[in-house]
């Protein structure tokens, strides 16, 4: 059961994962870069994102010490959840799947969008608190990253017009909103289909219960003699 603190804690936890995902994306971009200047830029960006992760985890840690153990356990940071939570695509990092132009456009627009998300978090923690100051610092970092991406974009793609950058921004905004809409729809459908999933799981489990797996026991067998193509 969640306590009254949960909405803020959840936001801090999810933001820590989002920042961690960004750090990993930037580190991957650094390793994939083919120019020292690009590698340096991505390296510094990754370092900032790692520091942001640490800042949000620190805020989360301070607040979670007073919540019930069950809530705290669910909020425990687990690196590999960055994939299951969708902050890093299970198919790979953006730099592995996008062309470089789209990647930079993604960074350019998402840093700006991130800044507006932080404004909401700032309201949650209180702008004049110590945490508020930390978040304001993070927002300045995000703006700086946005500026670097814009500079990079205009330097390497000088033929691009400002309207094209606006187009990328609108495109990413629409994508983000679509993702949110899809997620809400999935959550809605989940509620509808949940009983069906449960029923199907129940029936399949009853079937599995009837399967005799003892025939696959290995006692006394030479393990090297088991057929190599057998998946059981």
């Amino acid at each position: 059961m969640r306590s009254d603190h949960s909405p803020t804690l959840n936001v801090l936890s999810e933001t820590a994962y989002a920042e961690y995902g960004s750090a990993l994306e930037m580190l991957a971009a650094c390793k994939a870069a083919n120019k020292p200047t690009h590698a340096y830029g991505y390296f510094e960006h990754a370092k900032d994102e790692y520091n942001h992760t640490g800042a949000f985890l620190s805020m989360l840690s301070t607040r979670s010490q007073i919540v019930p153990c069950n809530t705290a356990r669910q909020l425990r940071f687990n690196s590999s959840s960055v994939i299951t939570k969708g902050y890093v695509d299970s198919e790979g990092y953006l730099i592995e799947n996008l062309n470089i132009k789209d990647f930079i456009a993604f960074v350019y627009t998402n840093e700006l969008l991130a800044k507006s998300s932080f404004e909401k978090i700032l309201k949650l923690v209180g702008p004049s608190s110590i945490d508020g100051e930390t978040i304001s610092g993070i927002m300045r970092d995000e703006l700086r990253h946005h500026g670097f991406a814009e500079e990079h974009f205009l330097h390497y793609y000088p033929a691009l017009q400002p309207w094209q950058l606006r187009f990328y921004r609108i495109r990413e905004t629409i994508k983000n909103k679509s993702r949110k809409l899809i997620r809400q729809n999935v959550e809605f459908l989940e509620k509808i289909f949940k009983p069906l999933y449960s029923l199907m799981s129940y029936l399949v489990a009853r079937l599995v219960l009837a399967v005799n797996l003892d025939v696959f026991k290995r006692d006394g067998k030479n393990l090297l003699d088991i057929p190599t193509k057998s998946i059981l």
Binding site: A205, V208, L209, L213, F216, I231
Partner: peptide, 14 residues
């Protein structure tokens, strides 16, 4: 053996 790995916990949970 992937199917074993998948089925055994299910059989126990069932």
């Amino acid at each position: 053996r992937p199917l074993s790995s998948f089925l055994y916990p299910i059989k126990v949970a069932a």
